[in-house]
Design a protein around this nucleic acid. Sequence first.
DNA 1: GTCTATATTGTGATAGAC
DNA 2: GTCTATCACAATATAGAC
Lengths: 209, 209
Amino acid sequence: MAKDSDTETRILNAARAVFIRRGTSGARMQEIAEEAGVNQALLHYYFRSKERLSEAVFSEAATRMFPMVIQILGSDQTIEKKVEGIVTTYLDNMSRSPFLPGYLISELHHHPERIHQLIRGVAGIELSTALKPVLDKLDKQIATEVRAGRMRRISAQQFMANLISLSVFPFAAQPMLRAAFGLDEDGFSKFIAVRKKELPQFIMSALTP
Amino acid sequence: MAKDSDTETRILNAARAVFIRRGTSGARMQEIAEEAGVNQALLHYYFRSKERLSEAVFSEAATRMFPMVIQILGSDQTIEKKVEGIVTTYLDNMSRSPFLPGYLISELHHHPERIHQLIRGVAGIELSTALKPVLDKLDKQIATEVRAGRMRRISAQQFMANLISLSVFPFAAQPMLRAAFGLDEDGFSKFIAVRKKELPQFIMSALTP
DNA sequence: GTCTATATTGTGATAGAC
DNA sequence: GTCTATCACAATATAGAC
């Protein structure tokens, strides 16, 4: 039911913006209150503490990041479709939320214990438990392709790490890349657009014997 | 001359550990003082403020990260040697400082203005200015290879982004990868060792027609 | 150079009126 | 549900003795 201008929703929206911008330690309840257009006491009325509010934001962010790769890599598509699916899905998603990767890396770097909070919120199980069958299935699929001479040997782990690295890192390192290449916001978007077109070919070419 | 147990050096070492672990906002002067085995007042005696101390740590970290790629990609080696050089250098360096990428991404994400501090400390010039001739030269080198039929077309920017993504991202996302793959510290090291061997082949295969 | 106070401000959280 | 006022403590920074 909750209208988009519900006080609780407005607070959560403001919290998301501030936590992602400042990080959990750098965020101030006062700034969140201002951005939500309410006073600081209301934040505690709805979320009890800064800690709980930050957990709500983190869980939501993690949920937007992790299920996709599991769903796509665990599907019954060809390797080529999976590569395209990961690249397209992540580049599109991250283009809409370009600060998500940096925020998640930052949070997990400074609060590694939060990793246990991952996925559990969305599927009720541990991340590695959810991923295990996906990796096993992918290893088998790759083995079949290798035997048919259509693919070079690579473990599902390394395969997945390469896909995510190539798709997500440019967003996580966006400030560095922009400074290094001298790109403004629009230039960076174009850089990503090129990537979206070329990355699947690049990866498939690396996988083909 | 400065002995390794100089008070100033001990403070800087402690600051490096704490800032990298907690981030600039999360770090506490008290924790740094404890880790250095001195009291809080001495931190201000040597570095005047938390801000300045954090700048010292950040500059040092940035300097350990960025010059390598410029040096290697700007050299006169073959593309293959450059790929090998980047992968080996970064994987070795990051293995020794596995928290560096996460720290730098985190800092630059929450304090993007710090980007201007980059490189200037080491070469006295802007990052993009230092990189421009390197990218131009690399573009020419790639064009030559393409004309000779030895390489697929790719821009120096995308080429460099791919190299760094594949080499650095796994360290930046270390907490996620370890949770996802169920790896302990040793398991992660082995994962990186495999990467060091396979990544150059993977990349060269992607670049070859 | 190094220490022990201490000043001063910032910040999460709560009490209580409306 | 929402506000103002305020508490309690954390954290940076400084003064001044040794």
